[in-house]
Design a protein around this nucleic acid. Structure first.
Lengths: 133, 133
DNA sequence: AATATGTTTCTTGTATGCAAGCTAAAATTG
DNA sequence: CAATTTTAGCTTGCATACAAGAAACATATT
């Protein structure tokens, strides 16, 4: 079997290609690809639980976002183990910009595919991952 | 736009899912996912140029493979800047096992898709990445 | 031959990603 | 209600990923 045909390899390279693409855009805001993603998740729900990031990874990313003054950790009144991750005013401002760029850059990256192909691709991607252990 | 629908995010998670899957298999050989991939590339051509890895990244990976005695760096007679990466006997042995596992585990990971869907998926994946900047 | 330019590898520094293990605080159970 | 188990976040240690740049060597040009 040709190693280039390895699906693990291909997915990794596709992911890297997408991350590089997205990274170029958000680096103008002083953010990394993952940081921008975390910010946009924060704008949706107050919790970063959707991020599917390891808690160890998320801790460090939040550290950096806190250091640059975009988020704040606040105590959670209902559960003293937990924290509330809140956007600062500066964080809200940048987050707005990210939310504008997100659909634009998704479109741009997906432009090699026709709308129909995009839909099929997204469907198959979801099907593949949802059943993976 | 729902951040979960972000293609960069989805590709990253699909890639991580695949890497975790493959990692579980090759960890029994004492290898990481990337190390196993590099070894299988070495078995094809003498050069690791197909790996599409940053030279900085590759250097460290080769360091680890050399430390565990699976590869050796040899001087390249034709170009004194370059090196030849060679499999040691131990490296060849493990590489054989990797090459057996590779198609098996590809099949296993892709099992949520029908053969037809798999073909479409691979085609679209290639189309997407080949035109990405 | 001497200079300029390009190439190959390595080094350094920064940023994820994850396993393993810790602590404090909940939630559960007897 | 006291003992056990679970959970949320953090720390540490290791393994990619990549930008930037250094060092050594090769190639092209003059």
């Amino acid at each position: 079997m040709d190693t280039n045909q390895c699906i693990f390899f291909q997915l990794a390279k596709a992911s890297q290609s997408g991350t590089r693409f997205w990274n170029k855009q958000v680096s103008r805001l002083g953010l990394t690809a993952v940081q921008a993603m975390v910010l946009s998740f924060l704008s949706e729900k107050d919790l970063g639980l959707q991020v599917q990031l390891d808690s160890a990874t998320l801790t460090v990313i939040l550290d950096r976002l806190a250091k640059t003054g975009l988020i704040e950790r606040k105590p959670n009144p209902g559960d003293r183990r937990a924290i509330l991750v809140c956007l600062t005013p500066a964080g809200k401002e940048i987050c707005q910009k990210v939310l504008v760029m997100l659909p634009e850059q998704n479109q741009a990256f997906l432009s090699p595919l026709t709308p129909e192909e995009e839909m099929i691709f997204r469907t198959l991607l979801k099907k593949l991952v949802s059943k993976a252990k």
